[in-house]
């Protein structure tokens, strides 16, 4: 396969995943910001949304300190000057898809192309809450359709594997960043647990990775912060947990290596990250510091991205 084709497939999957993640972040922030202050509602939610999306600095360059709902929504969803806005994610995804049309199935192409056509119907200015909700639902739906189309229609060869690796590397990054921004509300069992206020913060984290219901099925108890951390980092059943992402990354990279008959740095890094997750215990993570743990995970995940590029995509 052409290196450029693999590169396009990998990034196409990353951008579709990123768009969905942004939609969830906006969804959750809006929900939290609407709560009365007594229940933990605050305008800070829009700052954390920017931090989680990794574009707080860029936002400040454009809007200064005017961190409010209208500005953040416009910036994360539509702003052309934000390279990772949902609109840009879809634009880039479609550009990539056009360059590798021959490597996509008709179903995948149609999902991306019709989403791109549909995108034009959403006006970017003065969106009502209802319009925004409809827009976010459309984004999530598109990502689901794309994922489903890929899963159900692609040949199981390197094209499929590169696209899956891209999706899981992006997903791991997103989950880690959600945790990184909210780590201060996630406390070890021994600590004094905050009042019912914090419930909404914990629930919002779960919601942002669509895991609120899963939480109850897995732990069968009320939401506790250390369990939230456990679910998102170590629990292999949870499809957005770091462990689950790395199980998939490692598996698909091994498929690629077997197909090409050669292992490389990317496979080694993926395996070592997976092993590290497998050997981690929640108590230890809290002991050494959740923030530090997540920080070093994000760095490792980036290192993997770099080595995949070097090994296959250039």
């Amino acid at each position: 396969m052409l290196s450029r084709t693999a590169d396009n497939l990998y990034w196409l999957a990353r951008y579709m995943e990123r768009a969905e993640c942004l939609a969830r972040i906006l969804d959750v922030s809006q929900r939290l910001a609407q709560l009365p202050a007594a229940y933990g509602g605050s305008t800070n939610e829009w700052s954390s949304a920017l931090l989680t999306a990794g574009c707080a600095d860029l936002f400040r360059e454009v809007h200064g300190d005017a961190v409010n709902e209208a500005n953040v929504v416009a910036f994360l969803a539509f702003a052309p000057e934000n390279p990772s806005s949902i609109r840009n994610c879809f634009e880039i995804a479609r550009t990539n898809a056009r360059s590798v049309r021959t490597a996509l199935t008709m179903e995948m192409w149609e999902t991306i192309n019709s989403a791109w056509l549909e995108l034009k119907r959403y006006s970017t200015k003065n969106m009502t809450r209802e319009e925004l909700a409809r827009f976010l639902a459309f984004v999530k739906e598109t990502s689901l359709r794309f994922d489903g189309a890929a899963y159900r229609t692609m040949l199981r060869n390197d094209a499929f594997w590169f696209s899956r690796v891209g999706m899981y590397v992006e997903r791991a990054d997103n989950t880690a960043r959600i945790l990184d921004v909210k780590y201060h509300v996630l406390l070890p069992e021994s600590e004094h647990v905050g009042g019912p206020l914090d419930y909404f913060q914990w629930a919002s984290i779960l919601r942002s990775v669509s895991a609120l219901t899963s939480f109850h099925w897995v732990y069968r108890q009320s939401v506790k912060p250390w369990l939230v951390a456990d679910l998102l980092i170590l629990n292999a059943q949870m499809p957005r947990s770091l462990t689950s992402c790395y199980q998939n990354i490692s598996r698909y990279l091994d498929d690629i290596a077997a197909y090409y008959g050669r292992q490389g740095t990317a496979q080694r890094i993926a395996r070592s990250n997976l092993t590290r997750l497998g050997n981690s215990r929640m108590e230890e993570i809290f002991q050494t510091g959740l923030h530090e743990y997540i920080d070093s995970f994000i760095a490792e995940n980036n290192r993997l991205g770099g080595s995949i590029t070097e090994q296959y995509l250039v």
């Binding site: 396969m1 290196s3 590169f162 090409y260």
Partner: peptide, 19 residues
């Protein structure tokens, strides 16, 4: 389907960059 940047020449032979 290749673009120019996918190809290179070595010893007067054309190659494409693949994974």
């Amino acid at each position: 389907l290749v673009e120019g940047r996918d190809l290179f020449i070595k010893n007067d032979v054309v190659y494409m960059r693949t994974t």
